[in-house]
């Protein structure tokens, strides 16, 4: 994959070595704490060095993650984490690039980028913390919110069916699709590590409860269960499984075999030489 790993014999880093001393502002009880923990565990498992990892995000609760790590971080504008990560990875294929997002940032304002990042299949790991709500703007419905969830902005519910990120990822060409649960940071860490190892665009949807605006999501812990069958590499079977599962199947659900996006240029001409074509 061309990614840098620790030299053999170099001291292994612990998860805490990937955690910065800047304190998260998430609400106590928020699933995102756990996802942060899972990311740091995954990076330790992968024996990466913080300076060779970039964590890119947009705007929202989940997108605060970069600064909470000791990796290189980029906290950009709302919805545009994937393009930033795409540019970074295309220009610097040697880096391990993780992208953090939420259901509002990633599926609504950044929805178009999601489709095209899946399709482009760069070797990125896209971690979306899905809590079915806009938390940072105080509880508006997001693309994954249930149609009957009532809120100030949509009294009585939106009446709109939920967006199905995993199916969309599959249809758009993502090469690895997993669902994780924040309440299981170790399992989540293992899934993230596997996603990083898998070539191409890896999508990890993390069910990450919002205890402030969706306290009922604490019940998710009783609803999640390991995916009953191993990941398939057949998109047709994966589509059927993703379309019909209960939304709480946790594990790797699809592992594709598409080659990752690779740039096909290693030109070494000088810029001066390019002037020839203009000479009259």
């Amino acid at each position: 994959m061309g990614q840098r790993v620790n030299a053999p014999g170099a001291p292994m880093l612990a998860p805490k070595d990937f955690k910065s001393d800047y304190k998260p502002v998430w609400c106590p009880g928020c699933g995102d704490y756990s996802v942060l923990s899972a990311i740091t565990k995954a990076l330790a498992m992968l024996a990466l060095k913080p300076e060779n990892v970039a964590v890119v995000s947009g705007i929202g609760c989940s997108s605060r993650i970069p600064a909470y790590t000791t990796c290189y971080g980029f906290h950009g504008v709302h919805g545009r984490a994937l393009p930033v990560a795409t540019g970074l990875k295309a220009a610097r294929p040697d880096l391990t690039v993780l992208v953090a997002s939420g259901d509002g940032d990633g599926y609504s304002i950044g929805g178009n980028h999601f489709l095209h990042a899946c399709r482009r299949n760069l070797d990125l790991t896209y971690i979306v913390m899905d809590n079915h709500v806009y938390g940072m703007t105080k509880g508006q419905p997001s693309p994954t919110t249930e149609p009957d969830w009532s809120s100030k902005l949509a009294p009585g519910g939106t009446g709109l069916r939920e967006f199905h990120p995993l199916v969309i990822a599959l249809a758009s060409g993502a090469n690895f699709i997993a669902r994780a649960y924040s309440g299981d940071p170790n399992g989540c860490a293992a899934l993230i590590a596997e996603a990083v190892r898998h070539p191409g665009f890896s999508f990890v949807e993390v069910l990450s409860p919002c205890v402030t605006f969706r306290p009922e999501q604490r019940e998710w812990k009783t609803m999640v269960h390991p995916a009953p069958v191993a990941a398939t590499d057949d998109p047709g079977r994966a589509a059927r499984r993703l379309m019909t599962d209960d939304g709480f199947n946790v594990g790797v659900l699809y592992k594709g075999k598409r080659p990752a996006y690779a740039r096909a240029n290693g030109g070494n001409q000088t810029v001066e030489a390019l002037a020839c074509q203009f000479r009259a």
Binding site: G31, G183, K221
Partner: peptide, 12 residues
């Protein structure tokens, strides 16, 4: 999900 003595994140 986690070690038996570990408190769940969402209990806070």
């Amino acid at each position: 999900l986690e070690a038996p003595e570990t408190a769940a994140f969402d209990e806070l």
